[in-house]
Amino acid sequence: MAEKTYLEAINLAIKEEMRRDDGVMVFGEDVGGEKGGVFGVTKELAAEFGDERVFNSPLGESEIAGLATGLGIMGHHAIAEFQFADYILPAVNQILSETAKMRYRTAGDYTAPIVMRAPYGGGVRGGFYHSQSTEKIFAGQPGLRIVTPSSVYDAKGLLKAAIRSEDPVLFYEHKKLYRAIKDDIPDEDYTVALDKAKIVKEGTDITVFSYGMMLQFVLKASEKLENQGISVEVVDLVSLYPLDQETIVQAARKTGKVLLVTEDTKEGSIMNNVSSVIAENALFDLDAPIKILAGPESPSMPYAKNLEDAFLVNQDDVLDAMVELAEF
């Protein structure tokens, strides 16, 4: 066991997979050389694996996705980094039309077994173009997986599973968590299932679903509520698309009171899909309307500190929503 941050766990996962498989390579904007990425996620990789396996790409995201897909067709488990999840938008056509459909349209002759990493989320004073949650853009495209780790353990194990997967995986990393959470994780090789939601904490009064930074708020609030006699079941979605419907429905049925927490704006968010799954399958176990706590319907997260705070769901919001649901 060794204590690592979320960021160090991701770095370690890439390192170990590159040692294990010569076909794994890493590229993207500023990921190579001594810089090792704008957040330092790919630090030390170029030094160990050379500039041919770890290299900088031009500032063209469509090209990054296209190159990754091509490398995938050639059998490489390539890792492409989008510097921010906001910058993935120019690559949408490649990802939805080419990457996701490769296996289907070639009747299984070719696949794109690649990982596209993208740091998402707000709360770091990133302003409009460095704070967005763009995962919802891709949710709903069969052929594609979208996953996000919300613990240090998962950061390493989930990325390893993504790299080894024969499917294309969009790997969303919450940039606020990079250095905010640290934990002891095993030294041995391990993976985390790409398609399973996780019951992070068992409880009997209300069930709260979340992921990313919001999950940290949920866990803190549930500890507080435990002392007040309110027992909270906490579920980490892990897989944002496709959803682990079985686990989601089961956890919702358990308490009949469901709260969904996301920092994304409400309509069209991942949580709307979760809500729909629960409404469709668990109606007669529901004891309260499904509640979604989300950001405001506003174009993007502002830069000014007070406005960013106003935009983001915070610790108190989460606690209040949980208490309200428990009392309902």
């Binding site: 009949g256 007669f284 529901l286 004891d287 309260a288």
Partner: peptide
């Protein structure tokens, strides 16, 4: 926050009805 006090005593959730 001011919490409006609705009377819910006669509204039953699907789970309660079942």
């Amino acid at each position: 926050k001011a919490v409006p006090q609705n009377s819910n005593s006669l509204r039953y959730s699907p789970a309660v009805m079942r």
